[in-house]
Design a binder for these strands. Structure first.
Lengths: 104, 104
DNA sequence: TTGACATGCAACCAAATGGTTGCATATTAG
DNA sequence: CTAATATGCAACCATTTGGTTGCATGTCAA
């Protein structure tokens, strides 16, 4: 679990997760596009995410596909939020999102 | 949000949250009991947790009471887990816990 | 086969992090 | 009032972290 928290502690890594959440199964090169840091920096970040189990990979020829894995992320909330409280908070944030949509 | 992830990245701070999840409204001294690090180290950790909004405090005379705040923790899961997937994962971990209880 | 493309590995560096010690301040009990 | 208790602030230090550059390896297409 420690690795999961450490992995999520960095903004660059969270951004990579955002990208994978938006479009799964991307290659390293694809994930590098538009970023201001070097490819090697991205490689390191993806390695840390993979080591934590938050990202899973599959080789395909000379390419490496990356996938997000939501299971360990879910376990974070489970640790400090009780079952009923969790449902309450989920409903609350659903409502919040709905209201934010209506604002536009 | 960055502060929340940074706050949760450290094992000592997660342990402090565990303590507050188990028993809320504890003083600094109370939270220090049994720990191997100095009081000042704990103060720093609690300051970081408070700065992230994961812990909320209230002065009472010369004591400072600490409370856990689950809201920002819930928002972590919301970021990368869709609404339906969230329900599925919650059900899954409920089942897992149930099975683990029956094991004993 | 050979060159171009996609990824991997390692050494190195500046900045952030977690911890310490020493001293200061504020509140309560006797 | 005074001493003990509870917390606050600041300087300092070792380690970790996020980034770089340079070179190596592996795979596909012409």
């Amino acid at each position: 679990m420690d690795a999961v928290f450490k992995a999520l502690a960095d903004e660059s890594r969270r951004h990579l997760l955002d990208r994978l959440h938006h479009k799964n199964a991307q290659t390293l090169g694809e994930l590098c596009e538009g970023l201001s840091m070097s490819r090697q920096a991205v490689t390191k970040h993806l390695g840390i995410l993979e080591g934590a189990g938050v990202v899973v990979t599959k080789r395909q020829g000379r390419e490496k596909l990356h996938f997000i894995n939501p299971v360990p992320i879910n376990e974070i909330a489970e640790r400090w939020i009780g079952k009923f409280e969790r449902a309450r908070l989920a409903a609350l944030s659903d409502l919040k999102r709905k209201l934010e949509r209506e604002d536009k």
